[in-house]
Amino acid sequence: MSHTAHIRSHRKPRRSASSAAMRAGVASGVLSTLAVAGASGSAQAAEPVTQTLELPTLTADLAAQVAQSADATQQAAASYELQAERDAAAAKAAKEAKADLKEAKKKAAEAKKKAEEEARKAAAERASRDAERTTLTASADTGSSTAAESSASTGSSTATGSAAAVVSFVRAAVGAAYVSGATGPSAYDCSGLVQAAYKQVGVSLPRVSQDQSVAGTQVGLDSLQPGDILYWGGAGSAYHVGIYVGDGMFVGAQNSSTGVVEKPLSYDPPTGAVRVL
C-alpha cells in the first residue's frame, strides 16, 4: 500500500452529468417562470394605468360640464318664464287701469253734462221770470202799486179758521228750499207751496200757477185778507203765486236763491188775488 493511500484527496468529487443537467433545467425553468411572471405583471400593471388615470378623469370632467350646462339652461328658462309672467301681469293691469280710467271719464262727463243742463234750465227759468216781472212792473201804473201797498190798512189783518191754518202753514215753511216741481215738506216751488197749504185744510187746488190764479173769487189788492192767493201775471196766465199773511206781508217760494221767504208786498207787488176760503 502506498504511504498516501490513507489520506483523503483534497479534490472535490465530480458531479454527474445528469445531476448537472437537472439543476440547469430547474434553474432555467425558474428563470423562465420569473420572466413570464414579470412580463405578465408588467402587462397587467400597464393596462390599469391607462384605464384608471385617463378615461375616468376625462369622463368625470365631461359629465360635470354637461351638468353645469343643464343647470344654466334650466335657470335661464325659469328666468325667462318668470319675466314673461311679470310682463303678462303688467300688461293686464295696464289694460284694466285704462278701462277704469275710460269709464271714470265717461261718468264724469255725463255728470258734468247733467249739471250743466240743470244749471241752464234754472237760469232760463229765472231769466224768464225776471223778464216778465220787469215788464209787468214797468207797465203797471202808480195807482196799482199804491193800492197793493195800502191793502194792509184797508183789508183784514187777522186770520181766522181755515185761513189762519193756511197762514200758519206757509209761515212754518219759511226757510225751505226752492226746487222746481217740489211740493214739500223740505222744498217747494211757488204753486207747490200754495197747493200744500190749502191741502192741509181740506181744499184741493190745481197744481200750476195759471190754474190757481182763477181757482177762487177775484178780489182787489185793496181788500186782501190773510189766506188769499196772490198771483203775478194775468189771471189764467200767471207765472207766480204766493199767500197773503196779513199786515202787508206775503209768503212765497220765490226762487232757488232765496227759497221760501216772507216779504212785504212792496218787495214784489202782485198783479191780482183770488179768495178761496
Rank of each mutant, 00 (worst) to 15 (best):
Q75I: 14
K95A: 15
A70G: 07
V174A: 03
A138G: 13
F169S: 01
A104T: 11
Y178L: 04
S145F: 13
A123M: 09
A67S: 14
K105Y: 04
K121C: 00
S79M: 05
D141V: 07
A164Y: 02
A119Y: 04
T137C: 05
Y188H: 05
S162H: 02
A124G: 10
S128W: 08
K95D: 13
A91E: 10
E118L: 12
E116R: 06
A111V: 08
A104C: 06
A176S: 15
K121V: 09
K95N: 11
T158M: 07
A176D: 12
A138D: 13
S157W: 01
V179F: 07
A122D: 03
A172M: 06
T183V: 11
A123W: 06
A77N: 10
A140K: 10
V66Y: 09
E118K: 12
K113C: 01
Q83H: 08
R120A: 09
A138V: 08
A124F: 05
K107W: 07
G175N: 05
D130L: 11
S162L: 06
V174R: 02
A176I: 03
A122S: 11
T183D: 03
T160D: 07
A187M: 04
A111S: 10
E117C: 01
T158N: 07
D71F: 08
A88T: 09
A108F: 11
R86F: 12
A163W: 00
T135R: 15
A138Q: 14
K98D: 13
K105P: 00
A122E: 05
K112I: 01
K102M: 13
S180T: 05
A123P: 04
K98C: 07
S186K: 08
S157M: 02
A164T: 03
V166Q: 00
A94Y: 06
E96C: 03
E116D: 14
G184F: 06
K107R: 15
Q68P: 00
E116A: 11
D141Y: 04
D87W: 06
S151K: 00
A147H: 00
A72N: 14
R86C: 05
T160V: 12
T134N: 11
A159N: 02
R120P: 01
A89M: 10
G181D: 06
Y188T: 01
V167A: 02
G143F: 02
A147P: 00
E118W: 02
R126F: 10
V174I: 15
T134P: 00
K121D: 01
E85P: 01
D71I: 06
D130Y: 03
A159G: 05
L82E: 10
G143A: 15
K106L: 08
E125N: 08
K121L: 11
A159K: 02
A67C: 11
P185V: 09
A67D: 15
V66P: 00
S69G: 14
A115W: 08
T154L: 10
K95Q: 14
K121M: 05
